[in-house]
Design a protein around this nucleic acid. Structure first.
Lengths: 190, 190
DNA sequence: TACTACTGACTGAGAATTCAGTCAAGACGG
DNA sequence: CCGTCTTGACTGAATTCTCAGTCAGTAGTA
């Protein structure tokens, strides 16, 4: 993908985190990307398309980002904690991703065409977490009374809820992390 | 309050659930309320005021609604379940309230002046839930190893996360309710 | 008459989108 | 190598559209 397009998508991600999907102005985006207004339409036919592509871009980037951060050989419990706590970190890219994800979730209530990709990403995320939970139970010899898929769904939904509270300044990062860690312990019975 | 004003506020609540706070158009609202465009400005000087009044309206309505739904003499555990599950029901008014709440949460990321009222409401909600948890522990003679405030924060954050998933069609109501019920059981150790 | 509730056409600002045209970099024949 | 043709990336001013907000005037009523 040509570098100018990437520059635009990166700028869009930055602006969405700052102003929200619905606060994104095409002119402002052009300025942020250091590009003319017209170029936005040359590469991405209209605002809606640009938004869709930006959301995909953010998703991909989050995937890559997540991969490289999780310690590879570590025990599954460590990996699970990393994976979930990664979403609640005071770092520019995490904030950008979380804010954009929250925006996506919120926008999906009113724009049905966003729902499918959103549901798919959620399913994938849940599955990854469920697999880690299974691995933990095996490694630690825990009894898995409850289906790991349910535990995973609860934990990821909690991450989303806590992220929103953190980003909207209702709680601070440290507290969000602490609450999340305790939920993991609760779910895994230890 | 004159009936025309109420009609406008009810229409606004309906539209916010359908299009979001940021998608609310004054003309569309007038049509939905069966009223002329100018009347909106006669009763509520501008869009921001109208929005504020609508949010108050929704809040009051939710308060009343919640009160009357929770069985008064019932054991605290029942009352807690009612209180939390009430937010995840397939009913017009609940949907309107949840959608508006989600919008408020999402908007707060980009509009700092919304943060204080939001934080306050969250604190109140957490406290009410925490008090119910304490009551349950007392009634059932449970050991309260973990602070009830933390359990309450996790449960209410989970409700928000699950509501968003439900409203954005990533899961259905029944599943959201089931997951929530299990979390309550987990948090209360039973 | 005077006051309040109300209407709906209108205005202006801010945004999205379009478009005519520039420019640099190959491609290709002579 | 030179000239010219073509193409894709790009610009920015012009255009069109969308809204919140205004206002002159009407209807009912006390």
């Amino acid at each position: 993908m040509p570098s100018r397009q990437v520059a635009i998508l990166e700028a869009a991600a930055r602006l969405i985190a700052r102003r929200g999907v619905r606060g994104l102005r095409m002119e402002e985006l052009a300025a942020e990307a250091g590009v003319s207004g017209g170029l936005l339409y040359y590469h991405f036919t209209d605002r809606a398309t640009l938004l869709r592509r930006t959301l995909e871009f953010i998703n991909d980037r989050a995937g890559a980002y997540t991969e490289e951060r999780i310690p590879d050989g570590a025990p599954s419990r460590t990996r699970l904690e990393h994976k979930l706590l990664l979403e609640v970190q005071d770092e520019a890219m995490v904030i950008e991703n979380s804010a954009a994800w929250g925006e996506l979730r919120a926008s999906a209530l009113f724009e049905p065409e966003l729902r499918d990709p959103l549901r798919n990403s959620t399913v994938v995320w849940n599955r990854e977490v469920a697999e880690l939970i299974d691995a933990i139970r095996e490694e630690e010899g825990l009894e898995g009374e409850r289906p790991s898929a349910d535990a995973a769904a609860r934990l990821t939904a909690l991450v989303e809820g806590l992220s929103q509270r953190w980003l909207s300044d209702s709680i601070d990062v440290a507290e969000a992390q602490r609450l999340l860690r305790e939920s993991i312990a609760l779910e895994l019975g230890s």
